[in-house]
Write a protein that binds this DNA or RNA. Structure first.
Lengths: 152, 152
DNA sequence: CCCGGATCGTTTGCATGCAAATTATTCTGC
DNA sequence: GCAGAATAATTTGCATGCAAACGATCCGGG
């Protein structure tokens, strides 16, 4: 009788891992695309980060908001939005006031400096989108937008 | 003569910022899609993070690699890959050895435990991709893959 | 052979991000 | 009107990520 190495030596489908190519995984590709976009953003708007800019943009769009709601509208959890709000306040771009109607709430609003920076940066932000999508045709851009919205 | 509030009160094109809707920006949508994927991943494979799994996958695919090259192949800079390697080594999933040919280099390789975990997790990883792309048709999946590759 | 540039790894500092626990406050059903 | 559930904000701990500066080593040209 010929020797078998171990009980696990039965080779079911051969090389489970060889078929898993990292570069084809959607999560990995998403990460690289996000990295490229972040680099373009930082180059164009060095004053604030992407999440900080998203916070300013949402406040400009909606007016003053409670900190937690602001976090939900910018896709940040309570811990993350707190840090972002703290840093923006330290830069004088936003301010926080107590909500007289709900003593748990902290109302966040743009300062004049924050609004001015945002208004100044909007053209740059549009250029960032353009640079990010530069490799795509108009049809591809529309397809991407539609598909990503289904995944968000 | 009627009073003007300030010199800035000339209203050039009206509401620069009103046209900037955060939810339509490609960077913001990308971030939300990435968040959703991360949540699916963490739910399916709690033992390691996405970047840690990417590291194991690349080592399984390519064999032992120097730490910096491993970082480049997994889209992490030198500082980031160092932290990931440290944590994986602490878990006993990889090991590092000095390169005899180049004393600057650190060779990173999978341990048996690391390879076993990766092989076990591959079906889960494929399920993660499936769950992430679940809202899409086959045509949309192919379109997304093609478009993202142009952007990466 | 040797010097200047390139590469490898490390460290520090800052900024997300998420999970989980905690406190304070508000709301809701009975 | 009041106990329990829900919500708001904070804090801690861990894990990416990037930028910049650094020392050690290697490599190529003169």
């Amino acid at each position: 009788m010929l020797a078998r190495k171990t009980v696990t030596d039965y080779a079911p489908a051969m090389a489970t891992g060889k078929n898993y190519i990292l570069d084809d995984q959607i999560g990995f590709v998403l990460r690289r695309v996000t990295q490229r976009h972040l680099a373009i953003f930082t180059d164009a708007i060095p004053e604030v980060t992407t999440t900080q800019f998203a916070t300013l943009a949402k406040l400009a769009e909606m007016g003053p908001l409670s900190q937690n709601l602001l976090g939900r509208l910018t896709a940040m959890d309570a811990a993350t939005i707190k840090g972002v709000v703290d840093r923006l306040r330290k830069q004088g771009l936003i301010e926080t006031t107590a909500d007289p109607d709900d003593r748990r709430r902290l109302t966040v609003s743009l300062t004049d400096a924050g609004r001015a920076l945002f208004e100044r940066a909007v053209p740059a932000a549009q250029a960032i989108t353009e640079r990010t999508l530069a490799p795509l045709s108009d049809e591809e851009r529309q397809a991407l937008q539609a598909i990503l919205l289904k995944l968000a």
